[in-house]
Deep mutational scan, measured.
Amino acid sequence: MQRVNMIMAESPGLITICLLGYLLSAECTVFLDHENANKILNRPKRYNSGKLEEFVQGNLERECMEEKCSFEEAREVFENTERTTEFWKQYVDGDQCESNPCLNGGSCKDDINSYECWCPFGFEGKNCELDVTCNIKNGRCEQFCKNSADNKVVCSCTEGYRLAENQKSCEPAVPFPCGRVSVSQTSKLTRAETVFPDVDYVNSTEAETILDNITQSTQSFNDFTRVVGGEDAKPGQFPWQVVLNGKVDAFCGGSIVNEKWIVTAAHCVETGVKITVVAGEHNIEETEHTEQKRNVIRIIPHHNYNAAINKYNHDIALLELDEPLVLNSYVTPICIADKEYTNIFLKFGSGYVSGWGRVFHKGRSALVLQYLRVPLVDRATCLRSTKFTIYNNMFCAGFHEGGRDSCQGDSGGPHVTEVEGTSFLTGIISWGEECAMKGKYGIYTKVSRYVNWIKEKTKLT
């Protein structure tokens, strides 16, 4: 034993070699072989497995989906700052455009905790909710729209109204504003409101030439003092309507412009014939205590009207009353817009006519005020429907199939267009061939041609 100890002390290297040989010859039971080890760690190889990531292109799944990435790591994937920024906006807080917040056709661009709407022409605001041009839906104005110097929408209202708090709607500024039905039992019968379409306001006024200088022999019209197929109006439903009495009662109609003036057809009036105007009328054979009678003290036909040349060209006249009318729910003026808007309103496509005229061709006159909704007829169809001249200051309205029309005794009465609950004068009943005849239409004086003249002559002093 002493000898062994001496050998170990003198030859430590020998001992180490012996131990190493023993270990190498022993069977290893701690580690699995290569094949079995792979069965336990069965993990798919990654895209760049075996390579240094710093030297390969980034992978979106590896960089940002398996674990949260930084902007720089995302930049490695896209290799483009702009594309990385677009991805980053949604990656950080989701897609803010998912709810489609942009209105009126706006395009949404996502941002971090926010979004941006790219608005089409005519709109602005956070969600493109603000109209900035009158060309689109009248700028959301209830009545009139004008573009300011910086191309912003400025709404306005006709006389007797003021802008509401929203700067879009119009509200009454006087007790009985024009064009409004205020009798409670008839307010439910107000005709369907007309909503502004998209309009090209630059070209809204037709490029028409008034044929002022045409000389033409007097034409022989049949029954051209021209509501057939209409309905009984309720008291106060058309408070701007008046009836004219002269040699015979209810020979023509008219509309209240203001307390002192009536507008009617020029062919209705004769110099030297006494005319009485009755406002607030409903049943011409009954006294309903809503009527107001006034005498006409002055007749002003349009300066281009000449019955000797043509009885229905420039067929418009103004009547001055001896005493002002007292405005109330049964006696209310009709609204008159400017030339541009009167023309736009007419193009809405349908209007209402009213009167006490004959209820059928050569038949009896109506006792109760009649009204009828009539569609506008395109000019080409209008011209083809008659052998008589249709001037540019006239328009056609009615039904091709016949059966409904204005008729004798309705002449001078109103053709009105309702705009968001307020009625505007767009025409004056003038003439036609018979009444409600198939293929024939009622012919009306186009008020847009005469609004400046009306307003100039009827100013209240």
Rank of each mutant, 00 (worst) to 15 (best):
N42A: 10
C141H: 00
E433A: 14
V199S: 09
R358Q: 13
N328W: 01
T85E: 13
G125T: 03
V243N: 05
C128M: 03
P324G: 05
A366W: 07
S350C: 06
T422Q: 03
A397C: 03
Y47P: 01
I40D: 02
R75H: 15
R379D: 12
E193L: 11
A337Q: 00
E418P: 11
D131V: 06
N59V: 03
N147Q: 15
V377M: 06
N42S: 14
S350Y: 10
C407L: 07
L103I: 12
E286N: 09
M394N: 14
Y91F: 06
N283Y: 11
R140L: 14
L24K: 04
E340W: 10
S430Q: 06
Q90C: 07
N222I: 08
S107K: 12
E401M: 11
F71P: 05
K109I: 10
W261A: 01
Y450P: 01
G363I: 06
Y444D: 01
I7P: 14
E67D: 03
E54G: 01
D322G: 06
K168W: 10
L14R: 05
C117F: 01
C178Y: 00
G442H: 15
H289W: 11
G236V: 06
V296Q: 01
N283G: 08
P44S: 11
S430G: 10
V30Y: 14
S70D: 07
A250V: 10
H267K: 06
V153T: 14
K387A: 10
L52M: 14
P301F: 11
A173E: 09
G58M: 03
I284C: 05
I214T: 15
C407R: 05
N245V: 10
I262Q: 00
F71D: 02
L325D: 00
F31K: 11
I15P: 07
V331Y: 01
C407Q: 04
R3M: 13
G21W: 08
A9C: 12
Y91N: 06
N42F: 07
T264N: 01
F399N: 10
E193G: 15
N36L: 09
T264R: 00
A164D: 07
L41V: 06
S70A: 06
G409V: 08
F424S: 01
K339N: 10
L52I: 05
I336W: 00
Q96W: 12
F238D: 01
N100R: 12
L372E: 11
Q237Y: 09
E54L: 00
C128L: 02
P177V: 05
N313Y: 10
E73I: 01
N452R: 09
G179L: 01
M6T: 14
S406V: 07
R75T: 09
Y352A: 07
K438F: 10
R364A: 15
V257T: 01
K51C: 04
S156R: 09
E434A: 14
L23G: 02
L32W: 14
A207F: 07
